[in-house]
């Protein structure tokens, strides 16, 4: 996959992304939501957890996703669009949207995986229309 453009996002645009995440995921009980791009850039985070190593989380998530995509190819799949790791108290759900972004949702055992799946599906539809729609301001500098 070629990822050649530089992404430039301005404040109003970030605000729109934040609104969607708050409404769909945080209001449904998710603890923290992070958007990264497939190369590991942290695009934004929302939520109540204070994570000082957020850029490590962004980078490792992107790497994890990229590595599993290679595994997918080995078994004849294009890639896996979602990943889920279950912990004792806290779980993490990753899903890719578009070719370039991954939305990462952290949630505790008060919230069901089914709900997070449903809600992140909805969030992705809305986020995609912001990031890729006509009003999206993804710009191609070259």
């Amino acid at each position: 996959m070629h990822v050649e453009m530089n992404t430039i996002l301005d404040a109003s645009y970030m605000g729109n992304l934040a609104t969607v995440i708050d409404k769909e995921l945080l209001d449904a009980g998710a603890e923290h939501v992070i958007i990264v791009d497939v190369t590991g850039n942290l695009i934004m985070e929302r939520g109540n957890l204070h994570m000082k190593d957020i850029s490590s989380l962004a980078v490792l998530s992107a790497a994890n996703f990229a590595a599993t995509a290679e595994i997918a190819k080995l078994i004849g799949e294009e890639d896996f669009t979602l990943l889920f790791h279950k912990g004792d108290r806290r779980s993490i759900h990753f899903s890719r949207f578009g070719k370039e972004y991954i939305i990462i949702t952290l949630f505790d055992d008060n919230v069901s995986l089914g709900l997070i799946r449903l809600k992140s599906g909805r969030a992705i539809e809305e986020l995609s229309s912001i990031l890729y729609g006509n009003e999206g301001r993804q710009r191609w500098p070259l």
Binding site: N6, T7, I8, L9, A11, Y13, M14, T39, N41, I43
Partner: peptide
């Protein structure tokens, strides 16, 4: 692919 966040006036580049 550099990422530029104008809401925080920040550029991220990858080396």
């Amino acid at each position: 692919m550099a990422f530029i966040d104008l809401s925080r006036n920040e550029i991220q580049a990858k080396l």
